[in-house]
Design a binder for these strands. Sequence first.
DNA 1: GCCAACGTTGGC
DNA 2: GCCAACGTTGGC
Length: 134
Amino acid sequence: MKYWLVKSEPGAYSWEDLLKDGWTYWDGVRNYQARNNLREMKKGDQVLYYHSNKGLHIVGVARVTKEHYQDPTTSDERWVVVDIEPIKPLNTPVTLSDVKSDARLKNMPLIKHSRLSVMPVTKKEFDLIMRMGK
DNA sequence: GCCAACGTTGGC
DNA sequence: GCCAACGTTGGC
C-alpha cells in the first residue's frame, strides 16, 4: 500500500464537504506531475487531506476507492481523476508549521515543492503524521 | 493583498 | 530549442 497527500482549498472543496458527500472524484488536476501521481494511486491507498490557503493543516485521511479514469469535467484526454472516500479525521490537525518544524518531515514535497497538489508520502512520514494527529 | 516559485505559452 | 512574458498556486 502506498500513501499520498492531496491539497484542497477548503473554500472550494473541504474535508467537511467530503464527509458530507461520502465520496468524491478528485478532479481539476492540470499539472503533469500531479497527474502522474494520480495514475500511480492504487485502490486502498491512503491519502492525507490537506487544506491549503485557509487552515494550512492536514485534517483527515481518505482512501482510494477507484483507480484513475478520464476526468469527467473535461474532454481533454490528458487529465484523470481517482475516487476517494473519507476514512477518519485527525483529532488534532497537523499544521504546516508542525510539518516544517519536524526534521523527520523536512523532505516532504509539501515543504520542498509547495505548489504540487498531489504528492507521495512515505510510510514513515504517514505514520508520524498519524501519531502527531492523534 | 502581495509576491516568490514555478509551469506554460508563444515568438523568434 | 531558447527564453521572455504571462498565469497560477499558495504561504505570509
